[in-house]
């Protein structure tokens, strides 16, 4: 957590409305974009963002440093809120897979350089994985599906799902590190 975020967050806990507005300015775009990526519906993404900021404001979700980076914590709350929505909707979302993954990163105006770098790296790394590993990560992380649904979608035994997810995620992490160190040059 940056020092600035830490101070803003303490002010928020003290009931400073301006602090919530500052966090909104800083993170709403990321959380909105991430919600949209998961749920593919602008109106629902708006509802998710609203719900997340209410959770932060009312301290239904409370941050401390044991929960890792502040931005990651916000993304986790967002993801869980989306999953909750998806569950309530009881909708299978497998059609999102193709649509989502075929979009190219938009290289246009992007003020948040760090986000852009991370986005490029993660998406490059995802594409470098074997298709079945990429798929398992999308089904697991971006769609938040149950173990059973992941098993069905990948046509693999239920008992192997966890192992596949962990393996795919570790491979993704190694690939991300490789890209970060080697500037995205593929060493085959």
């Amino acid at each position: 957590m940056s020092e600035r975020d830490a101070k803003t967050y303490v002010r928020l806990k003290l009931g400073d409305k301006e602090a919530l507005a500052q966090l909104y300015d800083q993170y709403s775009k990321l959380l909105y974009s991430f919600s949209f990526k998961m749920i593919n519906d602008q109106q629902v993404a708006e509802e998710i963002v609203q719900e997340v900021f209410i959770k932060i404001w009312t301290q239904k979700s409370s941050y401390d440093e044991t929960k890792g980076k502040f931005s990651s914590w916000l993304l986790t709350i967002t993801r869980n809120t989306v999953i909750d929505h998806l569950r309530k909707r009881k909708e299978t979302t497998s059609e999102l897979f193709t649509k989502e993954m075929t979009e190219d990163p938009d290289p246009s105006i992007e003020d948040q350089i760090e986000w852009k770098e991370k986005r490029t790296t993660i998406n490059q790394a995802l594409k470098r994985l074997k298709p079945e590993q990429e798929k398992v990560i999308v089904l697991f992380y971006y769609q938040g599906l149950s173990q059973q649904k992941i098993a069905d979608a990948c046509e693999i035994p239920l008992g192997t799902v966890k192992g596949r997810i962990r393996l795919a995620l570790r491979h993704l992490k190694d690939t991300i590190e490789d890209i970060e160190q080697n500037g995205g040059i593929i060493h085959e």
Binding site: Q50, G68, K69, E103, K118, I122
Partner: peptide, 26 residues
């Protein structure tokens, strides 16, 4: 392992009216 994966989202600007709506709701 999933800590940063949310950053893979394409940046989309939320509607400008959303800010007031969210803050009021909160």
């Amino acid at each position: 392992l999933t800590d940063d994966l949310g950053f893979s989202a394409e940046p989309i600007e939320p509607p400008s009216a959303l800010k007031q709506q969210v803050l009021e709701a909160a």
